[in-house]
Deep mutational scan, measured.
Amino acid sequence: MGFKLLSKLLVYLTASIMAIASPLAFSVDSSGEYPTVSEIPVGEVRLYQIADGVWSHIATQSFDGAVYPSNGLIVRDGDELLLIDTAWGAKNTAALLAEIEKQIGLPVTRAVSTHFHDDRVGGVDVLRAAGVATYASPSTRRLAEVEGNEIPTHSLEGLSSSGDAVRFGPVELFYPGAAHSTDNLIVYVPSASVLYGGCAIYELSRTSAGNVADADLAEWPTSIERIQQHYPEAQFVIPGHGLPGGLDLLKHTTNVVKAHTNRSVVE
């Protein structure tokens, strides 16, 4: 069995187990497998329904001669939608809004960016022009300005110390501490036991640490421990890039980060 097929099978099995364990909360999309990078042309966006009122959005972007996937989250909030992270750029984010209108038909009224990198804030200006209120932590807003990236308009308070959590509509926002970046936030959907790890969490097929220019490698494993301790009931975990899975993604990420750190020390 090929690795790609095995990865998709694991996603399907995880979703099936969740649907059985929580039949009222989960209505997993039966329309197909989780979209992969090879299936999404740059400039297009796919939506994948995880649970009743919960979707991931998947886009792709060219970077350094390669094409990478990027995940975000959409959560229903009454007759409105909360968006977590842009679709990595203005063109993708405009396509995301169009796809949401086509498939869901509810307005996106608020959006949260989970850290300051372009795959999370690139497209904020498109959201703002569409009347979406954009939010991020003060740290993310400051770092985005320093980096020359787009800056969300509103500040999220109460997320300055490791372990801080605040309720934001249908989700809980959690600051686990520094990891992929010093400002990275985690998003949890309690009604569906869905954990969105953003770039602080890796997919299972990833074996290298990737972009760690703004990471705190020493603190990252401790931050992941905080996530595990705060959300032990999480059933569906979405990484910032690639295929979702279960809580095993947290341990896998820790292993990859520690291996990278150990290699760096040896070198």
Rank of each mutant, 00 (worst) to 15 (best):
G210C: 14
K8Y: 14
I84A: 11
L156C: 14
E225M: 03
L81Q: 02
A25F: 02
S62A: 09
D77L: 07
N262A: 06
S7K: 13
P232D: 14
V54C: 05
D64I: 07
E99W: 07
T109A: 11
R206F: 13
Y202N: 02
L156G: 01
V124Q: 14
F116I: 02
C199R: 01
K91V: 14
D79M: 04
T254W: 08
G169L: 02
S22E: 09
T109D: 12
W220M: 10
I186Q: 02
L247Y: 06
F116W: 14
A213S: 13
P232N: 02
T86G: 12
D119H: 00
N211K: 09
S162Y: 05
S56M: 15
V112D: 01
T222Y: 10
R120Q: 10
A133P: 07
D214E: 08
Y12G: 08
E219A: 12
N92L: 06
T253Q: 02
L83C: 12
S155G: 11
D77A: 09
I100R: 01
S113E: 10
H117R: 00
H252T: 14
T109Q: 13
Y12Q: 08
V11C: 13
G163V: 09
G131N: 15
S264I: 13
W88P: 13
Q61E: 05
V108I: 03
A15S: 14
L81P: 02
T207L: 09
V121E: 01
K4N: 03
H252N: 13
F26G: 12
V75Q: 02
L159G: 04
A21T: 08
E267R: 10
R226W: 08
P23C: 10
S193K: 14
V126I: 06
K251W: 04
T86I: 05
I74R: 01
T134E: 11
D248K: 14
S191G: 07
I186E: 01
I104G: 02
W88V: 12
S16L: 09
N184H: 01
I227N: 04
S205F: 11
A136C: 12
T222I: 13
D119G: 01
G210P: 07
T261E: 09
H117N: 00
T86F: 02
Q49T: 11
L106C: 04
L106T: 03
T14L: 11
G72Y: 00
S62L: 08
W55T: 12
A87W: 00
